[in-house]
Design a protein around this nucleic acid. Sequence first.
RNA 1: GCGCCUGUAGCUCAGCGGAUAGAGCGCUUGCCUCCGGAGCAAGAGGGCGCUGGUUCGAUCCCAGCCAGGCGCACCA
Length: 591
Amino acid sequence: MITSVLIALLRTALDNAHSADELPLIGDDIAIQIETPRNKQFGDYSSNIALTLKKATGISDSRDLAQRIVRHFPENAHVTRLEIAGRGFLNFYLKPTWLHDAMLTIEAQDSAYGTNSTLNGETILIEFVSANPTGPISVVNGRAAVLGDVLASLLKSQGAKVSREYYINDALNSLQLEKFSASVAVRYSQYLGHPVVVPPADEDSEEVIEAGIPETIAEKPSIHFPKDGYRGEYVKDIARDIYAEVGDRLESATEEERTAYFRTATLEHTIASQRGALGAFGVEFDTWFYESSLYAENSVEKSIERLKAQGHAYEKEGALWLKSSDFGDEKDRVLVRSNEKATYVAADIAYHVNKFERGNTKLINIWGADHHGYVARLKAGVAAAGYDPKNLDIILTQMVSLVRDGEAVIGGKRKGNVIELKEDLVDDIGRDAARFYFLLNSYETPATVDVELAKRQSNDNPVYYVQYAHARLVNILRRAEEQGFTLQPAERVERDRLIDPAELDVLRKLTDYPAELTSAAKEYAPHRLTRYAMEMASLLNGFYENCRVLPSKDEPTPPELTQARLALVNAARIVLRNLLVVLGITPVEKM
RNA sequence: GCGCCUGUAGCUCAGCGGAUAGAGCGCUUGCCUCCGGAGCAAGAGGGCGCUGGUUCGAUCCCAGCCAGGCGCACCA
């Protein structure tokens, strides 16, 4: 990396100045920072070292300080000019050689360009989405879905082993599942021809009687829809699917048989549809983990017993409490209720112990901000169970509020107005546009999504700008071949012909890629990459405008220059493609 | 009351303690015999919620206040 070269040169300059008695000794504890200036006029790189050294040296005139450093800056192969600017910034202007040489690295590493091995040895489990199995994946889930998915790719790019997991809250004591499957059961009966009496949803509405499907000819007794049942259309869809599978076989089943059947079938269908919706969004999970499996293997019980044995739990008021206040939580929490049922957190502790026991060294959970109050509790539980809570990172994505044409949409599965990720967004604007849309901003910002606006603007989605830039690169290479050019390795090309600012801008951007990838991974900030992608696309468009690659009537580019530019085009193609792959966006070759 | 997140251009949002605060959309103007116009060039538009503080330097860090969101269960 060129920045480490510059840091070393600056270090030498400081030492030289000290030897010449112009500066006091500057220890290694003072970090030298190199940054890329926002504005190109301030050089390729700059350093604020003279400003930061004011206190340590006792020299209050930072320009004077800067001069002392510059005076002792060693001769070297990279820096053509070193200027003092503003209050004492050192601006480095570099020979383009280092940029040209970047093409060699990019070509050699190809699809591995940008990756590194700093996280080798880490096994990371990212659990995300984990929506309740009582309905479809909503648009709101899109944010966590794409965040987790890209984060997994990012961490892989840094050398970690990563898996994606979805947790299914299907515990047997889950009331919501009973209500949900009961709702499906009623709708199923509707498909058998029973009219359904739907109670008023709220004070302002009235009871509705819906006819059976098909409309009954013979009189069939009507069935009452549960008062707090799930009213969404998707409930009918599941019922219809089940009806298609089993016909009227359940008509004569006993109440117990029906309940048991619908519980299982409803869960299966819901999960299948969730998996399908996420798949359409480009998100695939390595494991779908059933909460019920923890109970089936007695893991919850065992985990509670262990906490008790280790003295982290106690009985009070008929319940079993976790001494979570010993582990950073603000108060103790109930593990087993006085009715002897385990709480959600008890199961969750067992689940996270299970994650660690599977050999994961680091756990990342992505939750909605509404679960914030739960973080300290789970971390305390994990700590009590003997694991370091530092190895459990909980990312809280801020809420996504839905707006339709400027009007707030109050979502809710019970009420039935779920805006679905797949049906209402992905199917309309496509996977790439939908992903890019969510990846555009930080998960820490509460976001507003206007589905109608998102659809209307889909053609203006920046994703097309980026994909377009990639397609053009591919197209130039294809056209070159048609015109009889053979792509030469960057090594055999006259690289020093690439001196146009537009060319150097592109090259500079390409050299930033590994650092961008690393910082996006480190800070869990995929949105930086979408911004970076747009900037790169913009620079590429500038390059197309200013630098004709293939010879034409008006611009008879000499063959040597064409070859050099083709190598540049190819390098850019590699980087842009790698970037799009990490983001899970299709690197299209034609649009 | 306590905790977390947020407040930057008309809208949606970037901004990694630094030099003239950015992008996309929208708006205005110009550019299609030429590798893809889903493009390019130029312009109008904000001084970063408010007040203090730390710092050579604050949109960024700290404190207080104002505003919005989300939490503070023997629900999941």
